[in-house]
Design a protein around this nucleic acid. Structure first.
Length: 876
RNA sequence: GGCCCUGUAACUCAGCGGUUAGAGUGGCUGCUUUACACGCAGCAAGUCGGGGGUUCGAAUCCCUCCGGGGCCACCA
């Protein structure tokens, strides 16, 4: 051995050092090699303003597991990292920063402000990258991208201009979701709906020329100042006669028509009369268009009342205006009733401000022509979404998709490449222009709006590879293979990448999408600062090590939400500790290095060695299978189970006598050492994608050929290592040992009491096995003697394990009623089961219809049960 | 209103048509066993939400009821 492992497992002592080694070794950077198949994946770019939270930790752990697995499996692997400029979020952060220095972004002006953001990005923007490194992410940092890099910005312009020229981007006036706090339009998906308790106000509108009053219910009384009609259903007998008359808007004292609109009004709902405010409500806007109603804007882009709202309200915040309107209505006798009301309110997901529907001039993507091919790609299997249940969500959304509002009234982002001249001619161009191509005017100004952040992230899989240039990276690594991301950005990001990828590269940007769940607390609650149940990945990495954190996240990922508890990480750091100590033990007894260990000759090995290799081989096969289907939980559990229980609890204990020279020949001892090394080596490689640090720290000391375990080959199933016979024999031996152990506890004996064991096996070969390994039975079951195929003395306790008859000669002892009861129940259980199995076998339908292996299984089980019952009965 | 997920041991979850329903954590009883007390050995614990159906066979498929959760949708 090169060197010994430290006595204690202290992840802090080596994790960062090892990461630095990997970076120095440039193992994350794929080398151009046309002969090897490639595997590529792009990171869901975190916001530059981001600080690693548990969701990042999850999605990047999962990616890293797949990436390390593929890399070790021989693929030319690229994991391309980067960050997103995150328009609003970043602008807000820097604005807040400036605010503390008493500066307003308007004081600086656009250019200076954007400069400030770039400065901010240079100093703080890589924070999250460093944090991803702590987690062990093996992304190729030499290819780090940013959505506002020059190349990516060129891609944005190219796409914009192309869509514009194809008529798929247009500019127009429409009602959009407006955030009065951020003072920008946002798209439909950025609006989140929150259930809220509110009031429903019943307002009376006098009808001109009559003494009738129409009652209208609304949650937003302040908008009544902008009413330009009342509407009823044309077939509603209650109001039929009023259609065509005029009503008076209280407070404003304005006359508005009473119109009939069958689309807007549901006569069954509320009073059957609706106030129409075309400027401040989506459906009213449409009703206004249908009925040629005038628009009256009473709320401005900052959420304050306009002059149109009247002198009493002008300048008031919309919520203050609401109170004042209600008070006035009450005073003037127009407020009939106020009821508690539960409804959902649209808010801006980024800042939680109530959305104000607002008519404005914006840029839109005509989405249907893009959505169609994107639907087909998933439908025909070109792209597979996993877990599959998400496909219907995807279809549902894509089939009902609305045009995408892409312009934002922000300063930070990709400025829309449209130019206006003094004569208001508009030119959309990839290159900046200095003169108007239509009139030659040199007074040219660029559109002030920027693009939705998701517009540029929608190009991520190919813009990061150099598109629109046909770069070597683009040729080699595009399209990517898989995408791993949270389901929460299925619409924001995944759908748009599919649409853009198909349109601009002619290829699906990835063939598989794995959507991971949300990390929640141990009781399934969302993590939030107010609930105080947030787990900070950096904290827990500090406490338990990155390996334990990663393993925990992997083991909890079964495709659904992830209920995370710190206790779990504690548990898996215990696993890391176990690995550490088992390795330490192994290394104390190893005298060879991997690189000159030579091949193992399985035929030269005894059953015990063949058994552990067979178990490991089986585990290897299953781990590879599970990873191929993104079953991180299965894969992680398989390795855990094998390493801890098969390898540590059984194999190491069983090999100790030989290893310590207490049993067997030198040759046996050398074989044991060789196998110990082999199992450790393969286990570490198998485990590496999950726990990269500890596996590296240990594996390096095994003296392998490769400089790092991360570039060593990933274990694959090898036919010659499988040995069903060895598995059966050792299983039986384990069963016998366990039976003796629980007999000891069951009958109230102490570990010091030693028994004589009689094992009767009918097959000669198996009898030889038990004779050969009787020393192990003795050792692990704490026996005094083992007799194989000898008559057990009368009075010995009899049982059968896997069909092998055993008898244990227990020392004289008073047997309690409780102990007898236990034995009786054991027998009863077997009898009952036998009854079931026999019933099944007696059923012709079962024998005829069930697959042969199931029937054979039942028969074998019957034999086993019968043997067991026969023996157990003798104890009565 | 539409769509989707979900109810399995005290807790959190696997298992999703085939024998005896598993894991981690927790609980209980022993153990300083020469790598590890972040350990070892053993034990207890489940009418697989209720009901009905399909099947030789159902935790697993279908129906229904009850209970959780999510997404989408302009109900004033």
């Amino acid at each position: 051995m090169k060197e010994e492992l430290a006595k204690r497992y202290e992840p802090k002592d080596f994790e960062q050092r090892i990461y630095a080694d990997w970076e120095r070794g440039q193992y994350f950077t794929p080398v151009a090699d046309k002969d090897r198949p490639k595997f590529s994946i792009v990171i869901p770019p975190p916001n530059v303003t981001g600080r690693l939270h548990i969701g990042h930790a999850l999605v990047n752990t999962l990616q890293d597991i797949i990436v390390r697995w593929k890399r070790m499996s021989g693929f030319n692997t690229l994991w391309l990292p980067g960050t997103d400029h995150a328009g609003i979020a970043t602008q807000m952060v820097v604005e807040r920063d400036l605010h503390q220095k008493g500066i307003n972004r308007h004081d600086l002006g656009r250019e200076k402000f954007v400069e400030k953001i770039w400065e901010w990005k240079e100093s703080y923007g890589n924070q999250i990258i460093d944090q991803l490194k702590r987690l062990g992410a093996s992304a190729d940092w030499t290819r780090l991208r940013f959505t506002m890099d020059e190349g990516l910005s060129r891609a944005v312009r190219k796409v914009f201009v192309s869509l514009y020229n194809d008529g798929l981007i247009y500019r127009g006036v429409a009602m959009v979701n407006w955030c009065p706090h951020c003072r920008t339009a946002i798209s439909d998906v950025e609006v989140e709906y929150r259930e809220r308790s509110a009031k429903l106000y019943y307002i009376e509108y006098p009808v001109e020329g009559t003494d009738r009053r129409l009652t209208v219910a609304t949650t937003r009384p302040e908008t009544m100042l902008g009413d330009t009609a009342l509407a009823v259903h044309p077939d509603d007998d209650r109001y039929k006669d009023l259609i065509g008359r005029e009503a008076i808007v209280p407070i404003a004292n304005r006359r508005v028509p009473i119109i009939a609109d069958p689309i807007l009004v549901d006569p069954e709902f509320g009073t059957g009369v609706v106030k129409v405010t075309p400027s401040h409500d989506r459906s009213d806007y449409e009703a206004g268009n249908r009925n040629n109603l005038p628009r009256l804007q009473v709320i401005d882009e900052t959420g304050r009342m306009t002059r149109e709202a009247g002198a009493d309200f002008e300048g008031l915040d919309r919520f203050d205006a609401r109170k004042k309107v209600v008070a006035r209505l009450k005073d003037e006798g127009f407020l009939k009733e106020v009821k508690d009301y539960q409804h959902s309110v649209g808010v801006h997901g980024k800042c939680d401000t109530d959305i104000e529907p607002m008519i404005s001039r914006q840029w839109f993507v005509k989405i249907e022509p893009l959505a169609k091919p994107a639907i087909d790609a998933v439908r025909d299997g070109t792209i597979q979404i996993l877990p599959q249940a998400w496909e219907s969500t995807y279809f549902n959304w894509m089939e009902n998709i609305h045009d995408w509002t892409i312009s934002r009234q922000l300063w930070w982002g990709h400025r829309i490449p449209a130019f206006y001249c003094a004569n208001e001619h508009m030119t959309v161009s990839e290159e900046d222009i200095t003169a108007c191509p239509q009139c030659g005017s040199t007074e040219v100004r660029q559109e002030t709006d920027v693009l939705d952040t998701w517009f540029s992230s929608g190009l991520w899989p190919f813009s990061t590879m150099g598109w629109p240039e046909n770069t070597p990276d683009y040729q080699t690594f595009y399209p990517t293979d898989t995408l791993i991301t949270g389901f929460d950005i299925l619409f924001f990001w995944v759908a748009r990448m599919i649409m853009f990828g198909l349109r601009f590269t002619g290829k699906a940007p990835f063939s598989q999408v794995f959507l991971n769940g949300l990390v929640r607390d141990e009781h399934g609650q969302k993590m939030s600062k107010t609930k105080g149940n947030v787990i900070d990945p950096l904290d827990v990495i500090e406490k338990y090590g990155a390996d334990a954190v990663r393993f925990t996240l992997a083991v909890l990922t079964s495709g659904r939400d992830i209920p995370l508890a710190e206790a779990r990480m504690q548990g898996y750091s215990a696993f890391a500790n176990k690995i550490w100590n088992a390795s330490r033990f192994a290394m104390m007894h190893l005298d060879i290095e991997l690189k000159n260990a030579g091949r193992i000759d399985v035929d030269d090995l005894k059953v015990l060695e063949r058994w552990i290799l067979s178990r490991l081989n089986e585990t290897t096969r299953e781990v590879n299978r599970s990873l191929a289907t993104y079953r991180f939980d299965e894969a992680a559990n398989l390795i855990y189970q094998f390493f801890w229980h098969d390898f540590c609890d059984w194999y190491i204990e069983m090999t100790k006598p030989v290893l310590l020279g207490k049993h067997g020949s030198d040759r046996d001892r050398n074989n044991a050492r060789r196998v110990l090394l082999e199992v450790l080596d393969r286990s570490l490689r198998l485990l590496h994608p999950f726990m990269p640090f500890i596996t590296e720290e240990i594996w390096q000391k095994l003296g392998g050929v490769e400089p790092s375990v991360m570039v060593a080959p990933y274990p694959v199933f090898a036919e010659e290592l499988s040995d069903a016979d060895a598995e059966r024999l050792i299983d039986t031996m384990k069963g016998i040992i366990t039976r003796v152990r629980n007999l000891r506890a069951e009958k109230g004996f102490t570990p010091k009491d030693r028994f004589r064991l009689y094992v009767n096996y009918e097959v000669e070969r198996d009898a030889r096995f038990f004779s050969e390994y009787s020393y192990l039975l003795t050792e692990l079951a704490r026996l005094s003697e083992v007799h194989v195929n000898e008559q057990a003395p009368a009075g010995a306790f009899q049982d059968a394990v896997n069909g092998v008859a055993i008898a244990v000669e227990l020392p004289e002892k008073v047997v309690t009623a409780e102990e007898l009861e236990k034995t009786r129940r054991e027998l009863e259980k077997s009898r009952k089961e036998l009854e079931g199995v026999e019933g099944r076998l007696a059923n012709e339908q079962f024998v005829n219809n069930a697959p042969p292996n199931v029937v054979a299984g039942a028969q074998a089980r019957r034999a086993e049960l019968m043997a067991r019952i026969e023996k157990l009965e003798k104890n009565e």
